[in-house]
Write a protein that binds this DNA or RNA. Structure first.
Lengths: 215, 215
DNA sequence: CAATAGTGGATACCTTCACTTTCCAATATG
DNA sequence: CATATTGGAAAGTGAAGGTATCCACTATTG
């Protein structure tokens, strides 16, 4: 198919497809002449994936490029699979640069230690956890019931369920599953959490008793 | 204190403080004359909170304004607390407008039904779950081990732990806790998940055996 | 086989967002 | 009184993510 049909099929404007081609998110079509190329089903799928990464997963075009790059050109070893997934999707800079100094990683480190987890001590995620904890602090809110450690243990269950789906026989499939799982399940997690909150709140405030009013 | 000291204390540029004042995120200082106002400790705290919302929580200035608006001017009833929290932080539009038609809410509805949750059938979160599920589909990845329902059940535990911290005696404190909890715990959740993945991946690929290759 | 429409590619432009800069007239302050 | 600050308005900025415009070329189609 030519670009206009690709556009119709994928519901992405031609100009935008060209943009993604320029940015290297979408591989070029197969050239049939100096000014013509044909695109395949694979291009349609790829565009869908790109839109999923840029939309729900909220990745920047640059981050999406890194994610797709890891999928297209996977690391050699299983050990590197997750690391690749995570550094590819880190918000800014990616390669281990400090955002602005490092104000205080200790609370984050302590929490991880309390949970008994083994993590990369220099990973971006640790920095992000630290700043997330500072934000909670700034909000002056009470931490989760049972403490953050309980929260962490529950999240660990999630991580186990996710990683159980990663095939251990072939690196390229493992990469795809873990890289895309890492980013595409985030919005699922977030929206499920909010829906669960609705359910819990409903039980708390409606069923048992309603504090004191109508409306 | 005057604006320049507020700036020093909060580490936010004067021009930015003025911007937040203009956008209504920060309440004006107390006027002492036509061209002078004094700011309090409360302003310092508020600025910290604003930065937490705009930074780690990744809210837009507009969404942050809605969140702060709910806190400053809480709903009357407990029933509305969570709803207010959630609509205030919804990505776009907020008030129940369809992003672009509604392609297919059914998978989301089904999942929620399977979990036995009671949720607002018209809530934005349902739409977001639907589009998140479509994104997973687009990525062609296997769903979590044990199915999404298992994932959902685990998330429900999280929601319970969170909502257990919401005081049930005073609406204004309940609002603050649930509104800020909703948004400020998201980055905590996300970064903890990734750290948990590191731990799980480490156990899978390092301890037991490494599959079969070098590099 | 000429007229028309559709291409790939490059470049310029546009819009939104979150700030920054610049001005200003009116105080504060030394 | 001279200089520095202030609150406030308005214009400007830089990054991000597209769009729009051109253009020299095919690829049809009548």
């Amino acid at each position: 198919m030519r670009i206009s049909e690709l556009s119709r099929r994928s519901d992405v404007p031609v100009a935008t497809i060209k943009y993604y081609l320029r940015e290297g998110l979408l591989p070029p079509g197969e050239r049939t002449s100096a000014t013509q190329a044909v695109y395949s089903e694979a291009h349609v799928d790829r565009l869908e994936l790109i839109r999923a990464l840029l939309g729900p997963a909220r990745l920047s075009v640059e981050a999406a490029g890194r994610v797709l790059g890891v999928i297209d050109d996977p690391p050699e070893t299983f050990l590197d699979v997750l690391g690749a997934a995570q550094t590819a999707t880190a918000p800014t800079g990616a390669s281990g640069a400090a955002a602005d100094e490092d104000p205080d990683l200790d609370p984050a480190r302590e929490l991880v230690a309390e949970l008994g987890w083994t993590v990369d001590p220099g990973s971006v995620e640790l920095t992000q956890l630290a700043s997330a904890l500072r934000a909670v602090e700034a909000g002056g809110i009470d931490v989760v019931d049972g403490g953050l450690a309980r929260y962490g243990r529950t999240v660990h269950d999630l991580a186990e369920a996710e990683l159980a789906t990663v095939p251990t026989d072939e690196v390229s499939r493992a990469v795809r599953q873990s890289v895309l799982g890492t980013v595409l399940l985030e919005p699922v997690l977030l929206s499920l959490r909010r829906l669960a909150q609705q359910d819990v709140a409903g039980r708390l405030f409606t069923d048992e008793e309603r504090p004191d009013q109508a409306d």
